[in-house]
Design a binder for these strands. Sequence first.
DNA 1: GTGGTCTAGACCACC
DNA 2: GTGGTCTAGACCACA
Lengths: 132, 132, 132, 132
Amino acid sequence: MNWDLSGDRPIWLQLAEQLRLGIVTGEYRAGDRLPSVRELAAEAAVNPNTMQRALSELESTGLLSTQRTSGRFVTRDESLIREAGRQMAREETARFLARMEGLGFSRGDALELVRREAERKDKEDQNGNGTE
Amino acid sequence: MNWDLSGDRPIWLQLAEQLRLGIVTGEYRAGDRLPSVRELAAEAAVNPNTMQRALSELESTGLLSTQRTSGRFVTRDESLIREAGRQMAREETARFLARMEGLGFSRGDALELVRREAERKDKEDQNGNGTE
Amino acid sequence: MNWDLSGDRPIWLQLAEQLRLGIVTGEYRAGDRLPSVRELAAEAAVNPNTMQRALSELESTGLLSTQRTSGRFVTRDESLIREAGRQMAREETARFLARMEGLGFSRGDALELVRREAERKDKEDQNGNGTE
Amino acid sequence: MNWDLSGDRPIWLQLAEQLRLGIVTGEYRAGDRLPSVRELAAEAAVNPNTMQRALSELESTGLLSTQRTSGRFVTRDESLIREAGRQMAREETARFLARMEGLGFSRGDALELVRREAERKDKEDQNGNGTE
DNA sequence: GTGGTCTAGACCACC
DNA sequence: GTGGTCTAGACCACA
């Protein structure tokens, strides 16, 4: 995991999000055992308690489950993971629209920009590799 | 300004972006005088040299100009500011598409999600107050 | 509140239950402001963090809500409180049946015992005050 | 034995109850020799005098008897043990009704809840395994 | 003053 | 070793 923490929101929340991302993107796969709290905490350079809070958050959503003595595991319920992905996508989209609004672009403008950018990229993909 | 710095990219770049955002959103308006380097640096809790580099960056794009004795000013060329806004919007859009791709959504999926979310918000605005 | 803590289950859980009981029984009424975390913690002779965890638990169920600077409040949604009461009653009942089973009484036996005890009490209530 | 002591009632009383429970549930069987006072006291982490008082209490009811030189024994009179069980069940029932009353449920309500919960459990037993 | 967050460090039960 | 809990003490934002 690439732990990127900014000081503007609770660390445990950011950790929870990044773990969730890790699960959704398949870095941690359904049924996988996660590293121990202490390991994850060391990785992210935070206090184990803080990491534990993040993990508890994910447990409360069912994405993780814990086996007292052997560690924490990613849920085997792949539909739950997919739903989490959809949820993150919706959040990402809302955030995008909000930022565009902050830049003075209406939702219609934003939609149009996405359309154009998507088309541009599609074209880029057709011809070899457009930028490199 | 709310200076939010993360450790994963050069600080001066992040500062430059946030200043640019401040100009585009009108927090600093065309023709305004900016606070001194020292002030800005103190605000953002960074070294004045770092802030200096960020400001130089913006000068090189023409958004800022220095007047030897009286400080730095936002350009009076509003079309330049608008163009900067469009540029940021394009970047934001590209970043959005990239993140959605990371979540496993194609550009078409992303476009569809934006359309839906925009519609949802539009509806929300029609009825009472969306936040309640 | 009469804080009664036993060492056999997490303290925060017991605190949460007793707070919940306080709300359900009307000791803390709908819309009331709770004492501060620190006060409650002192009352119950536990660490403020532990009390906070208990309160967070109740917040997650909607029974409490928090107003950043002015304290925590019992929900105004009385139906939510009533539902919590029903839930506690169901739990209490299940626990009762389990204990009776532990004593070697079937669920039918238990039901019969409750019927008899209820009748006995009803009678007691009719004649002045049966025991005193 | 799992000694669970709460600070709200005399310790010796709680010990006596739990010993009585042990006898009624068959953990200590008719005719069995009990561990020594010192052992029991150590197990429960209480002062031997306190444990002594609890044992005396049970002796006064006839459930235990002391044999000067060889220790304390559970009575061989199984009907006495059964009667103790019935007595505990009655107490448990009264306590249950009192708690339900505290939650705002009449004795009739409580009876109905027990009936429903018992039915629910019966059904659960018919189908697969209730705990899943 | 309020709640919220974070850290450091300890102890526990489980296997 | 694992996760879970608890404490003590600090700092922050908000008003």
